[in-house]
């Protein structure tokens, strides 16, 4: 079966948005898929809106174009929803993984919303309110597009130069994000 998925990550400069996309692509590659990750091309500034994209495919990816109709959107800062059309192009039935303390996970006519307080969880593990690996865990748990093991491997390799403490903290954050979804599903069942 041909698998082809596109994901768009939204965040602010400094939130690890580009890293999140890279980690997702690395994990997919680890799982045996072809993958591609790239930032929205432009000047990076701390605090400014940032976008990054991932493609995951069962066949070789040859195109180098922007992503226009993603299957999922990951939103690292809910405040961006008020200033930018973050859901533009999102496919009907698509997934939104939203970093939010207030909003419940739900399904509406068009989309499936997964909401979790990723900054809080991130802060507990990393000492800073960084939501990226938490949201990746939630994305993996709610889609099964990549395995948790592959994401852990990606975090370990990609962040190796930043030291073992940071790697372990991110893996813990990733696992909590993953568990937040799988645990919620168990409760619902």
């Amino acid at each position: 079966m041909l698998i082809f998925r596109e994901i768009r990550f939204h965040g602010r400069g400094g939130q690890g948005t580009v890293s999140a996309a890279a980690l997702m692509a690395l994990a997919a590659f680890e799982d045996g898929f072809e993958s591609q990750a790239f930032p929205k091309f432009g000047s990076e500034r701390r605090g400014a809106p940032v976008e990054a994209y991932v493609r995951i495919s069962s066949t070789i990816i040859r195109a180098h174009n922007q992503v226009y109709t993603p299957d999922a959107v990951v939103i690292q800062d809910a405040g961006l929803l008020r200033s930018e059309p973050l859901l533009r192009g999102l496919k009907r039935g698509g997934l939104i993984v939203l970093n939010s303390e207030q909003n419940p996970s739900r399904e509406d006519d068009n989309f499936r919303w997964i909401c979790l307080p990723a900054s809080q969880i991130g802060e507990r593990h990393l000492g800073r309110p960084l939501p990226n690996t938490v949201l990746l865990g939630a994305l993996a748990a709610s889609t099964e597009w990549v395995s948790l093991g592959a994401l852990e491997e990606a975090v370990t390799n990609h962040l190796a130069s930043k030291g073992e403490t940071l790697v372990n903290a991110n893996i813990a954050a990733l696992r909590e994000g993953y568990g937040f979804i799988t645990h919620a599903e168990e409760v619902m069942v």
Binding site: F29, S35, A37, F38, P39
Partner: peptide
Amino acid sequence: MDGFLLTHTFEP
């Protein structure tokens, strides 16, 4: 090599 399209893209 195309800037960004290749330089900033992760691929195998």
